[in-house]
Structures are given as C-alpha cells and as structure tokens.
C-alpha cells in the first residue's frame, strides 16, 4: 500500500520537478535534468520491485544489482579480462588498423576502390555477428575466436569511413598541393590524412560499440567457462538475474567509458573540425 502511495507521489512530483528543472538555462540544469530522470527511473524500479514483491527471477531491484556487483566483483573482473582485454580490445585495434591500412592501399587504385566500396557497404549491412560459430570452429573456444569476430566486425566500417575521409579532400586543397609540386606522400601526409582524421575517429567510436557487441555475442556460441557473454547466457539459464544485470551494468560502463575516452581524444586531435570549434 505504501509502495503504491510512493509510486503515486513519484508519478506526480517527478515530472513536475523535471518540468521545472528543464526550464533552467546553463549547463547545471542541462546535466541535472537527465540525472533526475535517471534517478526517478531507478526509484520507480526499486519501489515496484520491493513494494509489490516482484520475484527477482523476473526483475531484481536496483539495490540487489548493486549488491550483486559487489559480491561478484572477482567474477566480473575475470570476465572483464577475458572478454574486454583479451578479445575486444585487440580485435578492435587489429580490425581498425587493418581497415585503415586497406583504405590506404585501396586509395592507390580507383579501379579496386570502385569494386571494394560497394562490397564494404554490403558487409556493413549484414548481420556479421553470425560468423561467430565459424570463428569458433576455426580459432577454438577461447578468446582468439572472439577477437577474430571483432576484427571482421570492425574492419569494414573503418575501411568505408577512412576511404570516404581520404576522398573528402577539396579540389582546391589538392590543386594547392599540386601547385607546390608536392609528391604523393607529401599530399597524403600533410593534407589527406589530417583531413581524414574526423572520419577515422567516427569509425573508431562506432567500432568500439560494435567490438563490445561482437565480443559478448560471440561468447553465446560457446566459450571456456569465463567471459561476459558466457556469464550472461549461463546465469540467465540458472535464473541468477542479479549477476546478469551486474554484467550488463559492467558492459554499459565499459561501452560508454571507452566511447567517452575516444571522444575526448578526438576532441584533442581534431580540435579544428567545425563540430568542435567554439
């Protein structure tokens, strides 16, 4: 009963607070409003779970998830090392680097580029995670096969973006280099690569999310008994939803933090791009 009242109060005063807060100008109000909204969602979730006795095999309360995060910290750590450090990170780095390298090579030949580019966008539209079982067959159950999935997933977005970036150089800028009698490598180094950087960062950011998805989903197809995807799929089957949620919270943290880190580096490196100018 009291849970119902609490929920009712939240439903009345929450939106009211949001409406008041969102009227404010300045960054404080801009940050506070979404935070308040997030807090409200969490509060409602907690009240519903505890107050109405929702079984934790359906939906554990936020407090239970926090507790699970604490008690399973060592498991989470092991899973993090297995999935993120062993599979996702190397796969992301190798796939992105290979994509960039391939773009630089393809850049030399307009013919090949016209052939590969449609192929690249084709692959980008495909459900690439589906290759996970094949990679497991080729590279075994351990992290190598997951890294391979991540490499394939991240290769094409980088290739397509980097090529677009290399092509995006303006005609006037290229004529300028030509008027200096600049060699190809000079034009590449001083004009086309810096000009392509924003595109490369777009791909790196996109790839960071893709890589994490690839690493986790690939583990649904079988792993040694460790890893975030493995934990999620087995603990779901054993109805330990609080552990599953803890893993999901960790995945969300890893995803948003690595994206934020990349965004910060991007800002520092491509400060001159119109989207960052003040």
């Amino acid at each position: 009963m009291s849970a119902g009242v609490a929920l009712l109060l939240l439903a009345i005063f929450g939106p009211l607070g949001l409406a008041l807060l969102s009227r404010g100008e300045g960054w404080a109000a801009r940050v506070a409003t979404p935070l308040l909204f997030g807090a409200m969602v969490l509060a409602a979730w907690q009240i519903v779970c505890v107050g109405f006795g929702v079984p934790s095999i359906l939906l554990p309360a936020p407090s239970q998830i926090v507790v699970a995060f604490g008690t399973h910290l060592s498991t989470l750590g092991v899973d993090f090392v297995q999935t993120v450090l062993r599979a996702v990170l190397p796969g992301w780095a190798i796939g992105s680097a290979a994509g960039l390298l391939a773009a630089l090579l393809l850049d030399r030949s307009a013919f090949l580029r016209r052939g590969v580019l449609p192929l690249g966008s084709l692959v980008s539209a495909m459900p690439v995670v589906g290759i996970a079982p094949i990679m497991v067959m080729w590279f075994g159950f351990d992290w190598q096969s997951k890294a391979a999935v991540v490499v394939v997933m991240t290769f094409f977005p980088m290739l397509v973006n980097a090529l677009a970036g290399l092509e995006s150089t303006g005609a006037m800028e290229r004529d300028l280099m030509r008027s200096y009698g600049a060699r190809d490598w000079q034009t590449m180094l001083k004009l086309r690569l810096p000009n392509a950087l924003p595109f490369v960062f777009t791909a790196l950011k996109l790839n960071s999310t893709l890589a994490l998805i690839g690493g986790i989903v690939a583990e649904f197809f079988g792993t040694p008994i460790v890893g975030m995807g493995f934990r999620i799929s087995t603990e779901v089957a054993r109805m330990n939803l609080d552990v599953v949620w803890a893993e999901i919270v960790m995945a969300a943290l890893v995803g948003s933090l690595s994206f934020a880190a990349l965004a910060l580096i991007e800002r520092a490196v491509t400060f001159w791009h119109p989207s960052f100018r003040e």
């Binding site: 800028e173 300028l176 004009l191 810096p194 119109p274």
Partner: peptide
C-alpha cells in the same frame, strides 16, 4: 577563390 587554408 577561397582561402583553402588547412584548418588543423
């Protein structure tokens, strides 16, 4: 016609 300066 345009400055064509490199923004970076």
């Amino acid at each position: 016609q345009a400055p064509a300066l490199y923004p970076w």
